[in-house]
């Protein structure tokens, strides 16, 4: 039995990386590793994902809150759940990821094979126009590295690009909320001021450098890919939001931002209320 064998990553020849785009997604590779990933996520995170019946059969922009520092286990879980619900041959899901993920050797190649591409508004539009669904996390590293005390808060840091993307592309937003991911790493403070003071926001596009506790790094300023602590992860896919229908052809972006984040906050707080004990679920 090969149930506990780790997913085999067939790396390209030295210097040759998996393409960054829909062409980099490898359905056969996804099919091969799905059962093992499913087992790992079920055992380690006791994962639950609900609400896929809300997804319309047309290209959509999934907008999520994500957690867990640089390892973002809820992102992997969503990719896994999506590919099993809609099947590998169904509409492909392309996730936009921070360069710290896509540029990391091994993890970056694994991510690209699974359908992740480096974040950027033009890439997202290109992929939507190709008929794929796109997954974005507007909060980026600020959200993934938010303090543990704010683990059940939507924190998009005022970023509205995702709204303009969905509106211009004429696609609906499908919000996705998740709890538990921020219990896989401990983050003690808001690291935005530190990132600014060190110039990381300008030169590395890293907007947050908090003090974190993770395995195997221990205490560390900032977040590096790590082995997540086990935790219960729950995800909920919400009904779609049609920005054109709700806010017209010339939306007030602040109003649209407040509405989307408010809708997600309500769902996230309700999901969090299902937690009896943090970590255990």
């Amino acid at each position: 039995m090969a149930l506990v064998r780790l997913p085999a990553v067939r790396l390209p020849a030295l210097g040759q990386r998996v393409p960054d785009g829909i062409e980099g997604r490898d359905p056969e590779y996804i099919r091969r590793i799905l059962p093992r990933l499913w087992l790992a996520f079920e055992l380690y995170f006791r994962a639950e994902v609900d609400g896929f019946e809300n997804v319309p059969d047309e290209p959509v922009l999934f907008v999520g809150n994500h957690s867990g520092g640089a390892s973002v286990p809820d992102t992997w879980l969503f990719l896994l759940a999506y590919n099993t619900y809609f099947t590998v041959e169904g509409r492909p899901l392309i996730g936009l990821a921070h360069r710290i993920i896509t540029d990391t050797p091994l993890i970056g190649d694994l991510a690209r094979k699974f359908g992740m591409v480096k974040a950027g508004p033009h890439r997202a539009r290109e992929v939507l126009d190709q008929g794929a669904n796109v997954l974005v996390y507007p909060g980026g590293d600020v959200e993934a590295l938010r303090p543990t005390r704010d683990r059940n808060r939507i924190m998009f840091d005022g970023r509205k690009g995702f709204l303009k993307l969905a509106h211009d592309a004429g696609v609906k937003i499908v919000p996705v909320v998740a709890t538990g991911g921020q219990e896989t790493v401990y983050i003690f403070n808001d690291g935005r001021k530190t990132a600014q003071a060190l110039g990381f926001d300008k030169y590395l596009r890293i907007k947050s450098v908090p003090i974190t506790l993770s395995f195997p790094w221990g205490f560390l300023p900032g977040g590096l890919p790590h082995v997540p602590f086990p935790a219960k992860i729950r995800m909920q896919v919400l009904p779609p939001i049609d920005l054109q229908e709700k806010f017209g052809s010339d939306p007030d972006w602040d109003e649209a931002y407040d509405y989307v984040t408010s809708t997600m906050q309500v769902a996230l707080s309700s999901l969090a209320a299902r937690t009896i004990l943090p970590v255990l679920g």
Binding site: N152, Q265, V266, S269, S270, A272, A273, T275
Partner: peptide
């Protein structure tokens, strides 16, 4: 957590 959910 229930109070937060209710208030939201």
């Amino acid at each position: 957590r229930h109070l937060i959910a209710g208030l939201e």
